[in-house]
Computed example of a mutant assay.
Amino acid sequence: MNPQWLATFAALVELGNFTRTAERLNLTQAAVSQHIKRLEESLGPLFIRHPRRLELTPAGHALLDYQREMDAADHRLQQRLTGDDDQQGEVSMITPGSIGLALYPRLLELQRASPQLCIRHRFAPTREVVEAVLDNRVELGIVTLRPDDPRLTASVFAREALELVVPAEARVNDWADLERLGFIDHPDGQEMATRLLSRRFPGFPGVRSLPCRGFTNQIGLILEPVALGLGFTVLPQFAREAFAYPETIRVVAGEPTVVDTLWLLHRAEWPLSARARRVLEAIGAGLTDRA
């Protein structure tokens, strides 16, 4: 579609009058009529012309939706190309669930300080994070395994321990205590529990030998049944720190520890936008000292 014709159409819809549209766009009324005629030659009638008003036809409504989508796409393009302004525009980030729970409140604080920023954050596993950054669907990503791809810059963002979390009043001295409590599982639960418990408990018989007391795939809900005394779980440190009722749970300390490195990803071929650099300054405070 000719952009000038679309602009004329949008102004005519808004103003409802050919004369005012011509004045708005600094065109002659004949030029406005010609633009609408050209569009109608391709799309069919766009307006029903009443004596004092214009009414959109179904084709007119469809074209108006299209014009608004084009305006929105143009706006997004301009935001992405003007990366020097750290006070406005869109910043996109994708992370695993645990670190995402820790970072999202910081992202909201940043957006509150700069309301013209648009923060887009999504939770995803490592494979999806890598794909999203490579496909330029997001600017920043965090993963638990460093990818081997020359198109990506990977730097240490933080380190995060796996934790054995039990109800606040529970005491765990041996494997029998875990069997008595039972396991609250989650999508990464058995893998994480195996990595931690196999090191903590000699003669580890395997997570599958434990009674399963529940399962959830929502990272923010895993500790709810633990807080109610329904079982224990193993999950990353930042997820536990984000839990709203810390007095209802307890971390069982012990050696050896299991600590994962979190890697910050972005495309290597071009520099980060000013907005992205500002986001990293905001979310890194208090986390980088653990890296």
Rank of each mutant, 00 (worst) to 15 (best):
T248V: 06
R199Y: 05
E90Q: 14
E14G: 07
F157H: 08
D86C: 00
A285K: 13
Q237P: 05
L262H: 10
N17C: 11
R277S: 12
F157V: 04
A244E: 08
G231Q: 08
R49G: 04
D84P: 04
M1Y: 10
V252N: 02
F157Q: 00
W175H: 10
V251L: 05
R275M: 12
N26S: 15
R53M: 10
H61K: 14
R200T: 12
P211D: 08
N217W: 10
Q190C: 09
A62R: 09
Q111E: 12
Q190W: 08
D149G: 08
A239M: 10
L27P: 00
D185F: 09
G97Y: 04
V143W: 07
M70H: 08
D149M: 05
M1C: 07
T95D: 07
D289M: 06
W175I: 12
C212L: 11
L56R: 06
S114W: 11
I48R: 14
L223K: 04
L140Y: 06
T194G: 11
T28G: 12
F243L: 03
A268L: 07
A158R: 03
V234S: 00
D84G: 03
E179G: 10
L210C: 04
Q190S: 14
Q67T: 15
M192T: 08
Q237K: 04
A11C: 09
H35P: 06
P205W: 11
E139V: 06
L210H: 02
C212A: 13
A242W: 13
L110G: 08
V259W: 00
T8M: 10
W270Y: 13
A170C: 06
R277F: 05
V207N: 01
Y66D: 10
R180W: 02
P3D: 06
R290H: 04
A193S: 12
R208V: 08
R200M: 06
L223W: 03
V234I: 07
R171H: 14
I99S: 02
